[in-house]
Computed example of a mutant assay.
Amino acid sequence: MSNDIRNNWTLAEIKSVYDTPLLELVYKAATLHRQYNDTAEVQVCTLLSIKTGGCSEDCAYCPQAARYSTGVNVQALMKKEEVLEYAQKAKDAGSTRFCMGAAWREVRDNRDFDRVLDMVKGVNEMGMEVCCTLGMLTGDQAQKLADAGLYAYNHNLDTSKEHYSEIITTRTYDDRLNTLENVRKAGVTVCCGGIIGLGESHDDRIKMLHTLATMPEHPESVPINALVPIPGTPLGENQKVDIWDMVRMIATARILMPATMVRLSAGRTDMSIAEQALCFMAGANSIFAGDKLLTTPNPSFDEDNAMFQLLGLKPRAAFKEEKQYLREAVEA
Rank of each mutant, 00 (worst) to 15 (best):
R248W: 03
R248D: 02
M249Q: 07
M249W: 01
M249L: 13
I250K: 01
I250F: 01
I250P: 00
A251S: 11
A251W: 05
T252C: 03
T252A: 02
T252Q: 05
T252E: 03
A253V: 02
A253S: 15
A253C: 12
R254V: 05
R254K: 15
R254P: 06
R254F: 12
I255N: 06
I255Y: 11
I255C: 10
I255K: 07
I255R: 10
L256A: 11
M257P: 05
M257T: 13
M257W: 12
M257L: 13
M257H: 13
A259N: 15
T260V: 09
T260D: 08
T260S: 15
M261Q: 15
M261D: 15
M261N: 15
V262D: 13
V262M: 10
R263N: 11
R263M: 09
L264V: 13
S265C: 14
A266T: 14
G267H: 08
G267R: 07
R268W: 11
R268E: 06
T269A: 12
T269M: 13
D270S: 13
D270W: 05
D270M: 11
D270V: 07
M271D: 08
S272Y: 02
S272R: 10
I273P: 00
I273Q: 01
I273G: 00
A274R: 10
A274G: 09
E275C: 03
E275V: 06
E275D: 12
E275Y: 06
Q276M: 11
A277Q: 08
A277K: 09
C279V: 12
C279F: 09
F280H: 12
F280M: 11
M281Q: 10
M281N: 07
M281P: 00
A282G: 13
G283I: 08
G283C: 10
A284F: 04
N285R: 12
N285G: 11
N285Q: 13
S286G: 01
S286V: 08
I287N: 04
I287Q: 06
I287D: 03
I287A: 03
F288R: 06
F288G: 04
A289N: 07
A289M: 15
